[in-house]
Design a protein around this nucleic acid. Structure first.
Length: 728
RNA sequence: GGCCAUUUAGCUCAGUUGGUAGAGCGCCACGUUCACAUCGUGGAAGUCACUGGUUCGAGUCCAGUAAUGGCCACCA
């Protein structure tokens, strides 16, 4: 044995050995208890980062532990097409070639992105293997696999038939760069220095009801806004009904300056008396609150900013201008005509597209939605009844809050990369103008019937027209990944996998996608299968750099897990990622820590050298000799370690288990026992071998490679430590 | 505006039934024949953010304060 542990020479070897032996593929055995983890599918648009390495480590620990315990342990890997994110990534690649997706056209673009994701997927698979992931490649899935897609279509049809999926004109978040609607969960709010403009809306004396309306002294009602250009779409001014300043004006009318539209002054409780002037301009087509006010008061909704961010024809003389140019022009005109009373700096938050960072525009649009109230009720109950446990527990509170305040989920996206909606229209009549324009669809006749079906219908059931047009939109990527825990197991077919492995045991993922993903899996899992998708949710934190800064390419502080795995060994990287960490909290990872764990692997290696390289003529193979005090102590400590590690793992306390093993192996076994054993070498050999073997078995889930390498050199009947029984 | 987390040795962090403070890294001294210098032995180092309370006893439970970070929300 070498003096220094050479991870390069062992890690690749064992990884392929395990896979060839079929150890990653569990058997469906009714006598065994299943243990299932569905891997959060990495987005197939890049390489693995250190966050992936963390989930690989935690999930592999659980899988290896339960496999050794004798369960049928399935860890099912996969990859996510990652709709909008991948589309944005690929469009950036095209941009460098001076192209847009429109230059390629929908089919060619889809083909190229498909190719791109498959290549990334392969790279990621190798990287997962490299990190020691013992997942079952024979069951690997991709979100765009035909069977998975079909399940997704069926779910949508089921929702539609149950009245839970509907198409409607609602206020959505529009990303002008991605040219698509987004759900609320995909919006990132950011503080921004802005200006609050105070604009005078001239009052109109109501002649018929003379005397009822008492105009203000200045004959204006002043409103405050951060977006003056939206005044083009104002259809009311709202005040709080209890606001004494404006009480006499309720029911009166005012002019929108510059365009001279006559609008009512109305009372609505949503208006905050203390904000600005206490009077707010109402732009129903471009603000969610205003939209709701307009619904309550039956106000018209005038869209004045189009999907192209330009002012529409409704904007009269400002039509055709980009919204920001229109803003400048309008401010200039307001000033010139004396309608701008004052301005003041104001800090407020703007919504941005999570993927491309463009400012989103609230717009009314015809989209598909999922009704969330009834689904959320199921989801809340599942957690309340303890059918799903969230770790750490504190996430239950935010879970309930989120579920209780859900708005309907907009699931249609005007992007090309993803599952196209299983909706067909008889002729182009059913398509929105937006859809026709974005996809350059020529008009074809038809009765306008809307058909939702898992497969393309041959003709319109109403008028027998065979020229049906599929909805060009694609699903929110989280709609398909929200069904991942059961579509991967064959649902809706009652496959043996589904029956045996579902509901899954643990969902292990980052808290950063808790709302985007975990909540949706719970909702859709309960709805589709009638069972919880998983029993325990373990949420890990973000891996930051050594100083606690978020890793990013631009900062240059990224730790590439594969690079450090090559340098220090995958075992060291894995151990560093669980050592001294807690669920739900971020952790800092520096190279020092990984180096320290590399030293630990080397320590283990040298313990093994000491134990294994000893070649006496003969020695007792069993632990039968009268035991000395130190022998009793180490065996007792080993027993305690075994019990503690088992208990820690049962309770998802990975760090505690890792520290227990580290302390035992290094400081009790090596520093104390081995030192003492040196003076009575031959009679301790059996104990040394035993303690080493059990230590390796306990440590195996954490550091699979070095433990296998050493275990193989020890006397035993087994073929691999991976399938050795968990020490009792 | 609401909610949550964090605050423990120079640094990064563990500490789950409340019982004399722990780890890794770093630091100091010594030690290279006999598994390992990717090492060993020994050592210095903390009034566990602050204030009050419960308790025989609190880093650990309760109330409040402060600082930092995060999440959620329709702040015009």
């Amino acid at each position: 044995m070498d003096k220094v542990y050479q991870h390069q020479e062992t890690e690749g070897k064992w990884s392929s050995f395990w896979e060839k032996q079929g150890y990653f593929t569990p058997e469906i055995n009714p006598k065994k208890k299943p243990f299932t983890i569905i891997m959060p599918p990495p987005n197939a648009n890049g390489e693995l980062h250190v966050g992936h390495a963390l989930f690989v480590t935690l999930q592999d620990i659980l899988t290896r532990y339960h496999r050794m315990k004798g369960n049928s342990a399935l860890w099912l890997p996969g990859a996510d097409h990652a709709g909008i994110q991948t589309q944005v990534v690929y469009e950036r690649i095209l941009e460098k070639q001076g192209k847009t997706r429109y230059d390629l056209g929908r089919n060619e673009f889809y083909a190229q992105v498909y190719d791109f994701t498959l290549k990334n997927k392969e790279v990621m698979e190798d990287q997962l293997r490299r990190l020691g992931a013992s997942c079952d490649w024979s069951r690997e899935k991709f979100t765009l696999d035909p069977a998975i897609s079909k399940a997704v279509y069926l779910t949508f049809k089921k929702l539609y038939d149950d009245g839970l999926a509907y198409r409607g004109e609602r206020m959505i978040n529009w990303c002008p760069r991605c040219t698509t609607a987004l759900s609320d969960a995909e919006i990132v709010h950011q503080e921004k220095e802005a200006t609050l403009w105070f604009i005078r809306y001239p009052l109109i004396q109501e002649t018929e009801k003379a005397g009822q309306c008492v105009p203000l002294k200045e004959k204006f009602i002043v409103v405050a806004t951060t977006r003056p250009e939206t005044m083009l779409g104002d259809t009311a001014v709202a005040v709080n009904p209890d606001d004494k300043r404006y009480k006499n004006l309720i029911g009166c009318k005012a002019y929108v300056p510059l365009i001279s539209r006559e609008i009512p002054i109305i009372a609505d409780n949503s208006v905050d008396k203390k904000f600005g002037t206490g009077a707010v301009k109402v732009t129903p087509a471009h603000d969610p609150t205003d939209f709701e006010i307009s619904e309550r008061h039956n106000l018209p909704k005038i869209q004045i900013i189009g999907f192209d961010s330009k002012v529409t024809a409704e904007g009269k003389r400002y039509a055709g201008l980009k919204f920001n140019e229109a803003r400048r022009q309008i401010l200039e005109d307001l000033k010139k005509e004396g309608f701008l009373e004052k301005e003041k700096p104001y800090l407020h938050s703007v919504g941005r597209c999570e993927r491309c960072n463009d400012v989103v525009e609230p717009l009314i649009s015809l989209q598909w939605f999922i009704k969330m109230k009834p689904l959320a009720t199921l989801a809340i109950r599942a957690v309340k009844e303890g059918k799903i446990k969230l770790l750490p527990r504190r996430f239950e509170k935010v879970y309930y809050q989120w579920m209780e305040n859900l708005r309907d989920w907009c699931v249609s996206r005007q992007i090309w990369w993803g599952h196209q909606l299983p909706v067909w229209y008889c002729g182009t009549k059913g398509l929105s103008d937006l859809q026709r324009r974005l996809n350059d669809i020529a008009e074809t006749p038809g009765c306008g019937e809307v058909i939702v079906a898992a497969e393309k219908p041959s003709e319109c059931p109403k008028c027998q027209n065979a020229k049906l047009i599929q909805d060009p939109d694609t699903f929110d990527t989280w709609f398909s990944s929200g069904q991942w825990p059961f579509t991967t197991l064959g649902w809706p077919k009652q496959t043996s996998d589904f029956q045996y492995f579902y509901p899954t045991s643990v969902m292990e993922t980052g808290y950063d996608i808790f709302f985007l993903w975990v909540t949706r899996m719970i909702v859709l899992g309960l709805y589709c299968t009638g069972q919880v998708p998983f029993q325990t949710v373990y949420l890990h934190g973000i891996v930051r750099d050594a100083k606690g800064q978020k890793m990013s390419k631009s900062k240059g502080n990224v730790i590439n897990p594969l690079t450090v795995a090559d340098q220090y060994g995958a075992d060291a990287v894995r151990m560093a990622l669980v050592f001294n960490t807690t669920p739900g909290n971020d952790q800092n990872l520096g190279e020092d820590k990984i180096r320290g764990m590399r030293n630990f692997t080397n320590k283990i290696w040298n313990i093994a050298r000491f134990v294994i390289d000893f070649k006496p003529d003969s020695y007792e193979t069993g632990i039968t000799k009268t035991l000395q005090a130190e022998d009793k102590v180490i065996l007792e400590e080993l027993k305690k370690t075994q019990e503690k590690v088992t208990k820690s793992l049962e309770n998802f306390r990975f760090s505690e288990a890792a520290q227990t093993l580290y302390q035992f192996i290094w400081h009790q076994f090596a520093d104390i026992y081995i030192e003492k054993a040196k003076s009575r070498r031959a009679e301790t050999q059996a104990i040394l071998e035993h303690v080493l073997k059990v230590s390796m078995e306990l440590l195996h889930p954490f550091m699979p490679y070095v433990t296998e390498e050493i275990w193989q050199k020890l006397p035993h009947q087994g073929k691999s430590i991976m399938v050795a029984p968990w020490p009792k």
